[in-house]
Amino acid sequence: MSENELNFDDKLMSMLHIIANEGINNAARGFSGLLGEKLTVNNPGVRMVELKEIPHILGGPENEAIGVYLRAEGDISGQIMLVIPYDKALELVDLLIGNPPNTTQELGSFERSALAEVGNQTGTFFINSLSSLTGLDVRPSPPAVMVDMVGAILDIIVATTGGVSEHVLLMEANFELGNRKVETNFWVIPDEKTLNAIRFGAS
């Protein structure tokens, strides 16, 4: 890598860190608001991950999980994904609906809509922050809820970014809810053209 490329990537990474920090904290606020409880934000950060590694980050590609996926579109574009292990998702639904623990045993359309709304508010709050930081226009798509193996859920990310690169740039955090320990992984993956816009616009 040439000196120049390194500099661009340093600048890019530092901008991404700023965006990630603000965005993730705002996203956590959106999520918290639905629950009326404060969330802990664990391990927020930005990193490059090899495509092949993606399905293994969340404990294994065959584990059952819920993925809530939405896209950010506009002057800035990218993907947003919340992933929750299946059992934790059931607990989260209980919390959202206001049920005692272990009430929810299955994820019907009503329960999925609650998880979709978590994705919507969390993702939209991230996007609001992005728009406010950059002054650019960015809007969310409606969310899609997937209940399946982690590998299958994450294929959309791999397939969308995989044609262009062997690596995926991830902005990530883990949201944890105090006493009921519902862990939700939150990922933001900027599109290559957005990274380029930031990279070449940053000077």
């Binding site: 495509l51 092949k52 590998g151 859920i153 294929d155 995989g162």
Partner: peptide, 24 residues
């Protein structure tokens, strides 16, 4: 057999697995 991989084997004790195929 992970994303973008292929494995060939002649070993009768091998089991090749592609986990969690979504669009793949």
């Amino acid at each position: 057999v992970g994303l973008g991989e292929r494995v060939v084997s002649r070993d009768p004790e091998d089991v090749l697995v592609a986990y969690g195929l979504g669009s793949c």
